[in-house]
């Protein structure tokens, strides 16, 4: 990003920092805007959605987009636009829930591995390899099948395969941090191992953790969509984007294409936004990986 490096930040106020970074990463700003709209519509879905997403209406069955039904209606006569807005809640819950659990547990495991080492590290490493030998979707498929379809279980099923991915990165990070002079120094002053870990090592793993977590946001949404597409994700009555897509895909590819186009567009747009944001965050927080 050589275009903006000539003018650095002059003042250090928050606003100017934001402004500086916004100019530096225009794509990131676009991503942030998409994500803000997404999060706000999820939170305020009840107010934003023009119609009740659950109310059926025989007369409006498969109504084409336009008029009352901005993006058309599904077979049950439910408003697609309102359902998409409420569906944002499911995607948001899955994205945040699975990412938080996945990176939280993953970071803890990674930290423990890097720190305790020995047989514990060895054992966890082997378990991690087992996880990585299985495709993520296959893992999630088997886990949702065993836990049963519900929002909570879908989040767990998507979070579990994330743990090894995160723990691996954090572990190697911790291993290199342990050798850093300031950590050595802290130990020399007589600080306990755990205090060193929490005060000096943990904060320094935060940047890569944030970068990693943002990168995973989008993939969790995609996994939920794929699971729902295969009939194993978040069940009715929650309007999940993936399921809206899968059910209409079976029937209305030609007779009511809006039922296929809009949910897919919603998924793609949000994942796209989170990827843009993730890229920008990586550039800003983790200069080593910068393009």
């Amino acid at each position: 990003m050589s275009t903006t490096t000539a003018t650095g930040p002059v003042t250090h106020g928050l606003m100017s920092t934001v402004w500086y970074n916004a100019r530096r990463y225009p794509l990131g700003v676009a991503g942030a805007i998409i994500m803000i709209v997404f999060v706000l519509s999820a939170i305020f879905a009840t107010w934003v959605a023009p119609l009740d997403p659950f109310s059926t209406n025989a007369k409006a069955s498969l109504a084409a987009p336009g008029g009352t039904y901005l993006m058309g209606a599904d077979m049950m006569g439910r408003d697609v636009f309102s359902r998409l807005i409420h569906g944002a809640r499911v995607s948001l819950a899955v994205a945040i829930g699975a990412t938080m659990i996945g990176s939280g547990v993953g970071a803890a495991v990674g930290l423990a591995c890097g720190y305790i080492g020995g047989w514990f590290d060895l054992l966890v490493q082997r378990v991690t390899e087992v996880f990585q030998a299985l495709p993520l979707l296959v893992m999630a498929l088997v886990i949702t099948a065993s836990l049963g379809p519900s929002l909570r279980n879908t989040i767990i099923a998507i979070a579990i395969p994330l743990i090894p991915i995160v723990s691996r990165v954090i572990r190697s990070n911790v291993l290199s941090l342990r050798e850093m002079p300031y950590v050595e120094a802290a130990k020399a002053t007589g600080m306990s191992e755990w205090r060193v870990a929490i005060i000096h090592v943990l904060p320094n793993t935060l940047a890569p953790l944030i970068v990693l977590a943002t990168a995973q946001l989008g993939s969790t949404i995609l996994t939920e969509a794929s699971l729902s597409f295969l009939g194993l994700g978040v069940p009715e009555p929650y309007p999940s984007w993936g399921r809206m897509l899968s059910e209409s895909a079976a029937e209305y590819v030609r007779t009511a294409p809006w039922l296929v186009i809009y949910p897919g567009l919603a998924i793609s747009l949000v994942v796209f936004g989170s990827n843009l944001l993730g890229d920008a965050l990586r550039d800003a927080l983790d200069p080593r990986q910068r393009d």
Binding site: F54, S55, T56, M75, M76, P235, E236, P237
Partner: peptide
């Protein structure tokens, strides 16, 4: 499921 959704409504 479709039938059940209608029933609930």
């Amino acid at each position: 499921r479709d039938a059940a959704v209608l029933l609930i409504d």
